[in-house]
Write a protein that binds this DNA or RNA. Sequence first.
DNA 1: GATGAATGAGGCTTCATTCAT
DNA 2: TATGAATGAAGCCTCATTCAT
Lengths: 201, 201, 201, 201
Amino acid sequence: MATSGKIREPKQERSIETKKKIINAGYEVFSSVGYYGTNTAEIAKAAGVSTGIVYGYFKDKRDILLCVLDIYIDNVTKPLYSLMADFTLPIGIEDLAPAVVDEVIKIHETNSRIHNTLHSLAATDDGVNARFSELEHKMTTKLSAKLNHLGIDKPDMFERVHLAMNIVQSFAHEYVFDKHQYIDYPKMRDIVCNSIIKLFV
Amino acid sequence: MATSGKIREPKQERSIETKKKIINAGYEVFSSVGYYGTNTAEIAKAAGVSTGIVYGYFKDKRDILLCVLDIYIDNVTKPLYSLMADFTLPIGIEDLAPAVVDEVIKIHETNSRIHNTLHSLAATDDGVNARFSELEHKMTTKLSAKLNHLGIDKPDMFERVHLAMNIVQSFAHEYVFDKHQYIDYPKMRDIVCNSIIKLFV
Amino acid sequence: MATSGKIREPKQERSIETKKKIINAGYEVFSSVGYYGTNTAEIAKAAGVSTGIVYGYFKDKRDILLCVLDIYIDNVTKPLYSLMADFTLPIGIEDLAPAVVDEVIKIHETNSRIHNTLHSLAATDDGVNARFSELEHKMTTKLSAKLNHLGIDKPDMFERVHLAMNIVQSFAHEYVFDKHQYIDYPKMRDIVCNSIIKLFV
Amino acid sequence: MATSGKIREPKQERSIETKKKIINAGYEVFSSVGYYGTNTAEIAKAAGVSTGIVYGYFKDKRDILLCVLDIYIDNVTKPLYSLMADFTLPIGIEDLAPAVVDEVIKIHETNSRIHNTLHSLAATDDGVNARFSELEHKMTTKLSAKLNHLGIDKPDMFERVHLAMNIVQSFAHEYVFDKHQYIDYPKMRDIVCNSIIKLFV
DNA sequence: GATGAATGAGGCTTCATTCAT
DNA sequence: TATGAATGAAGCCTCATTCAT
């Protein structure tokens, strides 16, 4: 993040703490009422700081969002990377797929609301959009490499992995929000797993 | 839908035309800069009318959006229903899937930007969200019935159809925005078709 | 009412009727929600005419109010003049005062709400204010003359009559709105009558 | 009174000062052009502050008015209460009445215009109306008690006191605005005093 | 005369951001 | 650093009035 001269890059313990508090407050507030449904005063209040100081740490409101996005990306990637690290040979896609699906659901359960907010903004904010793309790119690359490493290989791996990710993500979203009463989500989960498996066998 | 007493329910040619102009302007403006990136004055200007008259036809800014949403839903459903009507026996899922995928891509090419805007709002607007859910429900039901009618049957049809729709939709989105340079979208299209086919054989 | 060239002074039956309908509608609407609580469209609607034609008969919104004020003044003065005409010798202030008080109450019962509205505007509208002053002036003069004619005479008659009118009016207002629960209004009426009587004996 | 979360309940010197400035500006502006004849921007300007900060201290425009009403009530009641406190035995209604009348005139000379504005709104605003009623109630009660204490007693005291107040008030109003040229106000004052005296002897 | 659609100025209010302390 | 009061641009909406038909 290119921070202009006016914005402090906090070095001291206390400052770092304050900045974190604001980001966390932003995370909460943006999660529950969205970016446009809130205002900086509320974020400051939720963080337990004054309105003014927010602009000591952030260039503007969007800058807070960008930091929240960083947190979100961490929240999403870390457990997945960690899960991937746990996969060791011998393991087949049959075991891998459900594990990933369930993990993504778990991640979504904690982050679905901020996901919504951030995703909403990707439509109009190129910066946000770019980060989502980058995230997908990284995940695709990492996952492909991992699968390859585990002996799972097919032509057009990027395309398959990417598609798999799309499927899992849109399913996790539905699952968490439990949008449709006519859908049996546990059953759907099995079908999802199966579809993914079939992508790699 | 429920228009209060103050809102004109246009009967005359001229009124209907004006209302349409505003909705179309809303469609354009919301498409290009999003709901929060614009204001009623700009919509009015784009429609070639005064600010005031907008409130003669719509309760508020959101009401315009809701009408744009109606248009969007029409734009999405009509060609699909029409496509479905064209499917007649004998036809297999192998032919059906690519046709649907290509049609959805085509639809998305015209409506992707408004789709983004509307989808963004579903996160914070229950009304918008409900309409999207309803749309998905209707599509799922119709498609299931159609497949069944064509002799394509499997257990858990709703779950399969719904998943298929999710897959197609998220793919079409990617395809249209051509987000990732490392993805070969035509190839991905084939994989998508294959995944869908496998859901129903 | 100096009506500018654009405003028709209706000559035809039908036009006169339309103008009356609008004034009556104004009377009703201004009575129930006040001058600022309404708008010309509502008046037109209540009158069963179009918005546009209102400006065929009236210069502006205020002009309607001024005509309503005329009606109000008629409503107030006519019954009082008629009552005064009924007073014939021999009659004393003891009989006269209660009769007037009761008549004013009766008048207020029908016109209290428009009275409120009009009185409100007198504070900021010099025209309205002037008409109220004129009304009071006329009433004072007429009443003084009548009393004199009936042999009721005192020094400073204008002052006494005017005060008497003030008393009756403020009482009638309270009586109609029954504002204070701790007041026994019938009793208060008797005291009011007595006070007035004492002004002239 | 009930200030929502967003409204500053000023604690600091500076805040209190600003709030006062706005109320005073409201008092002036509402006095001279009425409630509907002005807008928040003008009030802010008159107070020497920005438009925005007004909404830091007040919920809306009406809220300012309510605070102005508080000031008005203070302006009216304090000198009267103070005058009443000065009355000590032995004193008769003959001395008391003129003192009160003159005091009310004095009060009205300073507050007549805001009185007009506020009174105007009582017609359509229940809150304002209620406060006026309450004020009258309090004054009636206090005055009755005081008179009783001074040995002035009659049946139906509330009715008499209330009527006396009405008389004084409507007279003071006329006196201040000097509405009628044909009225000799000093003479009228004497008649008013006499009427009041006669209510209590 | 009559209609009701259209105009556009202006009011109320919010809120990202700055500033005095 | 920190506070929270202050700024002012901008958004949404209303409504008296005009105008095309």
